[in-house]
């Protein structure tokens, strides 16, 4: 029983991690309707920045957020402005896919060029210390991640629902043409949204860096999980992504323990495919938003 509880708790902790890396992806998709295949590389870039910040300045990795989040905001905004914007009206979707796939390939290999194949370990500052709650053990950093994920979901929802900019963003997401007719500068909203989504990834990367070694291909692993989470939660839904992340975290943890560590990815992606094919709106998405299937 204790083992089971531990496995479940591990799952929830993983869920927090998956949530925090997925929020930006689902947000960018929900608003701009672009699947950012370079999302994982944004995370990788953020983690390298965190590593640089902590090792060069000797500061706590969490403090890096003041640099990393704005840096990724700019990276995201620039990506939208220079890469996505010119392709927004491309008749063929494959052009947009190749654009971010190309960006992803370039970023992975740029990291490889700069840092080589070695692993960069961000100092943990005690974040890898296990905390014991009776028989249950979790890492301090994992608790921070879960807490931050919850706060980020709530914060983003409040921003989108309560602020005037949030209203404009939702308007653009729901009906681009009409938003333009209201006098909203749609292109600027896109740049802002991509920037915000990337800044969320920036925030995720300072939380993830102390727990996971940084390498050029770290993004590939995380981005696939993020896609799974976002599909499950319904594309564009931030609370959906959170719940989806929890579900995937639990599946990952339970299947890793009960089926076998080497097969848990197959299980996770199997679930992903079943959801994508049978219920493409996700577990919580509404049927009306099925712009991506025929």
């Amino acid at each position: 029983m204790e083992t089971f509880i531990q496995v479940v708790v591990n799952g929830l902790m993983l869920g927090g991690l998956f949530a925090i890396i997925s929020i930006g992806l689902t947000m960018i998709f929900g608003i701009i309707k672009i699947v950012n295949f370079a999302h994982g590389e944004f995370l990788m870039a953020g983690m390298f920045l965190t590593w640089l910040f902590t090792t060069k300045l000797g500061l706590h990795p969490y403090a890096a957020v003041v640099v990393v989040a704005p840096a990724l905001f700019v990276l995201g905004g620039v990506t939208q402005k220079l890469l996505i914007q010119p392709l927004m009206n491309a008749r063929d979707e494959h052009i947009q896919i190749f654009a971010t796939v190309g960006l992803s390939t370039a970023m992975i290999n740029l990291a490889l060029l700069i840092y080589g194949a070695d692993i960069a370990n961000t100092p943990a500052y005690g974040l890898r210390t296990p905390l014991e709650f009776g028989p249950i053990r979790v890492l301090e950093g994992q608790l921070f991640i879960l807490g931050a994920a919850i706060l980020l979901v709530i914060g983003m929802e409040l921003f989108l629902r309560r602020s005037r900019t949030g209203l404009a963003i939702r308007a653009v997401a729901q009906n681009r043409t009409a938003a333009q007719l209201m006098g909203i500068n749609v292109n600027w909203i896109y740049v802002l949204s991509f920037g915000l989504g990337a800044a969320c990834v920036g925030m995720a990367s300072v939380l993830v860096a102390p727990l996971y070694p940084t390498s050029s291909n770290i993004g590939t692993y995380f981005v696939l999980i993020a896609f799974v989470v976002v599909i499950l939660g319904g594309w564009g839904s931030i609370p959906g992504a959170f719940v989806g992340a929890m579900v995937i975290g639990l599946i990952d943890s339970l299947s890793g323990f009960y089926i076998g560590a080497d097969l848990r990815e197959a299980v996770v992606f199997g679930v992903f495919l079943v959801i994508l094919i049978l219920r493409p709106s996700g577990l919580f998405g509404s049927k009306q938003k099925l712009s991506h299937i025929s």
């Binding site: 729901q174 043409t177 009409a178 749609v186 009306q288």
Partner: peptide, 24 residues
């Protein structure tokens, strides 16, 4: 002029097919 700037000048269009924001 860009569309949003035209709106700012006081020209408003009520589009064909209503174009409301459905989930608001």
């Amino acid at each position: 002029l860009a569309a949003h700037d035209v709106v700012d000048l006081g020209i408003t269009m009520i589009p064909e097919g209503r174009q409301l924001f459905p989930d608001m």
